[in-house]
Computed example of a mutant assay.
Amino acid sequence: GRFTSAWLLLQMHDPEPRLAKASGVFKQTFGNFREAWKDKTFRHYSLFVAGMQCMVAISAPFFAVYMLEELHFTYFEFVLSSVASIFTQFIT
């Protein structure tokens, strides 16, 4: 797969880079975000996703301890459950 990917990347046309003509892209993006933030649905969804990501980041280290100590997983079972989780994410 890697050789095929490398071959296909070599076949791609890579255009010459051009300098961005627009100045103040950051200000424009920030302004667009400020306008979008006024929408109630966007605001609620953004806060929900940010809160979910925050809670996942905080709780993630404790799952390994929980599986090994409380569920009495062997290291092999722990690795299999981790691989199954990653594989499921990859498939879906």
Rank of each mutant, 00 (worst) to 15 (best):
5 S>N: 09
6 A>P: 05
6 A>F: 11
7 W>A: 15
7 W>K: 15
7 W>F: 14
8 L>E: 07
8 L>K: 14
8 L>R: 13
9 L>T: 05
9 L>P: 00
9 L>D: 09
11 Q>N: 10
11 Q>V: 05
11 Q>R: 14
11 Q>D: 06
12 M>K: 14
12 M>G: 04
12 M>Y: 11
12 M>Q: 14
12 M>E: 10
13 H>V: 14
14 D>R: 13
14 D>S: 13
15 P>T: 07
16 E>S: 13
17 P>Q: 06
20 A>G: 09
22 A>V: 08
22 A>T: 08
23 S>R: 05
23 S>N: 06
23 S>G: 04
23 S>F: 06
24 G>P: 01
24 G>A: 01
24 G>V: 00
27 K>L: 07
27 K>M: 06
28 Q>R: 11
29 T>D: 06
29 T>E: 08
29 T>C: 10
29 T>V: 09
29 T>K: 12
30 F>M: 09
30 F>H: 09
31 G>R: 06
31 G>Y: 07
32 N>I: 04
32 N>C: 06
32 N>Q: 08
35 E>R: 12
35 E>I: 09
35 E>W: 11
37 W>K: 08
37 W>M: 08
39 D>L: 08
40 K>W: 05
40 K>N: 04
40 K>M: 03
41 T>W: 04
42 F>A: 10
43 R>L: 05
44 H>R: 07
44 H>E: 06
45 Y>A: 04
45 Y>N: 05
46 S>H: 02
46 S>G: 02
46 S>L: 03
46 S>W: 01
49 V>L: 01
50 A>E: 03
50 A>Q: 03
52 M>A: 12
52 M>N: 03
52 M>V: 13
53 Q>I: 09
53 Q>W: 10
54 C>H: 12
56 V>T: 07
56 V>D: 03
57 A>F: 15
58 I>D: 07
58 I>K: 10
59 S>K: 06
59 S>H: 07
61 P>H: 06
61 P>T: 05
63 F>A: 12
63 F>Q: 06
64 A>R: 02
65 V>A: 12
65 V>N: 08
66 Y>L: 09
67 M>R: 13
67 M>K: 11
67 M>C: 10
67 M>V: 05
68 L>P: 00
68 L>M: 13
68 L>Y: 10
69 E>R: 14
71 L>P: 03
73 F>R: 02
73 F>L: 09
74 T>N: 01
74 T>I: 01
76 F>P: 00
76 F>H: 05
77 E>G: 03
78 F>K: 01
79 V>E: 02
79 V>I: 12
80 L>D: 08
81 S>F: 15
81 S>P: 05
83 V>Q: 09
83 V>I: 14
83 V>E: 05
84 A>S: 13
